[in-house]
Design a binder for these strands. Structure first.
Length: 750
DNA sequence: ATAGGGTTAG
């Protein structure tokens, strides 16, 4: 916030009195002052702030214009605090000084500060009003922009064009059109603004109509049309207009280069690029981006190194190129080398890390971003939320939620959807539901996240309730919605309902069954014990079965103790994915539960022969904003004594309640007598025990496991939930389990 | 020296 008393002191000195003759800054400005003013402007424009300051300090006499040049320079070079303090020292600030500061505040500070200054200004001219119109429009505040427009006593061409642009930039093309129709004195800029609005929405027909009708076209008019056709993929028309244009500038050429590049015509793009009469950073960037889009990072780098000068966008192009190619190390090198970083750079690096699954690096970078004082934009928030979801960092996610609401991001789809997903993945359905209710806009992704989220937690009824509500809105269910709906039916045993949705979804919602839907159906039928039907569906479907479908059948075979079908499913999986360790373990468990120990042994040999490594199992739990990780038979945790003692005691009480440790669930890779001992110390049990000891009664225990939960632990957790009177929410690699009062939300099907 | 239209990166 700008301390307004300083402004008032400056304002007091602004007078409209005639200055006394002989005052240094008034009267005849000598040539030297004018010369210096021009030099200051030149330095500032070239970004040489220090040079300008040196010159300014050395000047024996200054005019208000001298101060204004400095002020504008500071504003252009984003030195807002310097601009503000300089403003306070201007002996006689004029309306120009005020307008310059007004603009700087609106761009780099806040609209509140700008409004404060605007209200204090002793004399406002049309520029002052125009600044208010455009800056409010830039913040999406169209109706406030309109207020200032209506308030302006004198409207010049810029006021009208500013209001027109305010509508166009905020997607209100109809309002722009109405304003345009309300009068006739429009210039080329106005016609261009409206045309660009139609181009933005992909309405080339309307844009063309304006283009043909406008009284005088300038080079910008041609550029809008050329780039419009190019971006829309109509390179024929873009090229035709390019050839027909009476004048071309660097914009025209660049639009064609990027048009060819984005439409997959790399060679054409390069030809045009090589033929350009002049190039700026943007044209170079467009060509570098062309190579990046085609994953030709070597060529991109070559061109990048040849660039006569690079801007932030050039670096960002390379950074995102490496990131998208999965070359994270190169991306980080670029990120560290960049002379300047902007919000895009940070967001791109965050996205690279979070999408690559580098949770630690994502969070570290996010913290560094805060230290840098970098503005956290929506993209950065979404990346970090997604990382919180991956590592189930609920506390951190909730803190982000608070910041999001303050920043006003939490209610939109882009960040809101990430927030919903985070809460579900952290095992907190209530918070997801509340966040969903808080959202001001919901798109198909929001609904899908809710449906799939409830389904994965085993709350099929809630998922289907959300689906019923969705059907009453204007948002149409898509194929992903139906995957969620079928999964909800499957996870909650609603077999007939699922079958009915599967066969009616094409007619009702225009969704054609994809492999994912068949996988759900195989799962649904298989869990219900209708193994033959599931198998028949696989034979009849119009795709080759993939390993997830066989996996669903394998899982069903395990639950319903059908080792023959399980074996044939597993064999198919081994053909398709010989390196999938989870499948060996699953099949091994099936053999083990049928007492076929020699087959279990064969599996072990097979895994060794094929060099398949079992992924070590581990679990973690967040307690007091700190993550505690456990692995099988863990003995490194500082509170291990307490945990083991508690587990021993718990074990006795569980056995009294009827619990029998199911030794047949473990992959047969330990000696018989050691089995029970090993099982007791599975990582999820250790994590849960730590949670029970450290989390106050009445609050849920949220445990995450990197693999599927073991059968014995699943059974044990049911007992523990009843004995300890705790809700245990377990996220395994496949789904969520809510253990409460002796039963689990998965209904023992997982 | 301040305010309105067109090209690149997310």
């Amino acid at each position: 916030m700008l301390p307004s008393r300083y402004l008032r002191s400056a304002a007091r000195q602004t007078s409209h009195r005639r200055p006394a003759a002989g005052e240094a800054f008034q009267g005849k400005l000598d040539a030297e002052v004018i010369r210096h003013n021009k030099a200051i402007t030149a330095h500032m424009r070239a970004g040489r702030v220090a040079e300008a300051e040196r010159l300014f300090a050395a000047m024996p006499r200054r005019s208000t214009s001298t101060y204004n040049a400095m002020l504008a320079g500071y504003a252009a070079n984003r030195r807002l605090p310097l601009a503000v303090s300089l403003f306070r020292t201007i002996p006689r600030p004029d309306t120009f000084s005020y307008n310059t500061l007004l603009h700087a505040l609106a761009v780099s500070s806040s609209l509140t500060d700008a409004r404060g200054l605007f209200d204090e200004m002793p004399v406002k001219d049309s520029v002052s009003y125009n600044v208010m119109i455009s800056s409010h429009a830039n913040h999406g505040l169209v109706s406030l922009a309109r207020n200032y427009f209506d308030l302006a006593p004198e409207k010049d061409a810029v006021s009208w064009n500013g209001m027109l642009a305010a509508y166009v930039r905020n997607g209100r093309i109809e309002d722009a059109r109405a304003l345009f129709t309300s009068r006739t004195e429009w210039d080329a800029i106005s016609w261009n603004a409206l045309m660009a609005g139609y181009v933005q929405r992909g309405n080339m027909a309307e844009a063309k109509e304006l283009f043909d009708r406008m009284p005088a076209r300038d080079v910008v008019s041609w550029n809008i049309m050329v780039s419009g056709y190019a971006r829309g993929g109509n390179m024929m028309e873009a090229r035709r207009l390019f050839d027909a244009a009476p004048v071309r500038d660097v914009f025209t050429w660049t639009a064609v280069v990027s048009g060819f590049a984005q439409n997959g015509m790399l060679e054409e793009a390069r030809k045009v690029f090589d033929a350009m009469p002049e190039r700026n950073e943007v044209s170079w960037n467009a060509m570098v981006a062309a190579y990046v889009q085609h994953r030709m990072m070597e060529k991109a780098k070559e061109l990048f190194n040849m660039m006569p000068c690079r801007n932030v966008a050039s670096w960002n192009t390379m950074l995102t190129g490496y990131a998208q190619a999965g070359m994270l190390e190169e991306a980080k090198v670029v990120f560290d080398m960049m002379p300047q970083k902007d919000a895009v750079s940070w967001a791109a690096m965050l996205a690279a890390y979070s999408q690559g699954g580098y949770s630690e690096e994502t969070m570290q970078l996010f913290i560094e971003m805060g230290r840098h004082g970098e503005w956290v934009n929506r993209s950065a928030f979404a990346c970090v939320l997604s990382t919180c979801a991956d590592i189930a960092a609920l506390e951190c996610g909730m803190q982000l939620h608070g910041r999001l609401m303050k920043a006003g991001y939490g209610v939109g789809c882009f960040v809101g959807n990430a927030l919903l997903a985070m809460y579900f993945k952290c095992g907190n359905m209530e918070h997801a539901r509340n966040a969903f209710e808080e959202m001001e806009e919901r798109d198909v992704v929001s609904w899908n996240t809710m449906i799939a989220g409830y389904a994965r937690h085993g709350f099929g009824k809630e998922a289907l309730d959300i689906f019923d509500t969705m059907k009453t809105t204007s948002t149409k269910p898509d194929d992903i919605t139906m995957v969620g709906v079928l999964a909800a039916c499957s996870h909650s045993g609603l077999v007939e309902k699922g079958i009915s949705y599967f066969y009616s979804m094409h007619h009702d919602f225009g969704v054609t069954a994809k492999p994912e839907h068949y996988t759900c159906m195989i799962d649904l039928l298989g869990r219900a014990g209708r193994l033959t039907e599931a198998h028949d569906l696989m034979k009849d479907m119009p795709f080759e079965p993939d390993s997830t479908m066989w996996g669903a059948l394998l899982g069903a075979s395990r639950i319903h103790r059908n080792p023959e079908l399980g074996r044939s499913a597993a064999e198919k999986i081994f053909e398709l994915e010989p390196e999938n360790a989870g499948m060996y373990v699953l099949l091994s468990n099936i053999y083990a539960s049928s007492g076929k120990w020699c087959d279990v042994g064969k599996m072990r040999v097979m895994m060794e022969e094929r060099g398949v490594k079992k992924v070590p199992g581990f679990s973690w739990i967040e307690v007091h904003n700190k993550v505690h990780t456990f692995s099988v038979g863990d003995c490194v945790h500082p509170e291990k004594e307490k945990i083991y003692a508690f587990l021993e005691d718990l074990d006795m009480r569980m056995k009294k309640a009827g619990y029998v440790s199911a030794t047949d669930m473990v992959l047969h890779d330990v000696e018989e007598e050691e089995k029970e001992h090993m099982l007791k110390y599975h990582s999820e049990k250790l994590a849960a025990a730590y949670g029970i000891l450290n989390i106050p009664l009445g609050r849920p225990i949220r445990v995450i496991k990197n693999l599927r939960v073991c059968g014995d632990c699943h059974n044990a957790f049911k007992y523990i939930s009843a004995i300890e009177g705790r809700l245990i929410i377990l996220r395994d690699s496949n789904r969520f389990h809510h253990f409460k009062d002796g039963s689990c939300s998965c209904g023992d099907y997982w």
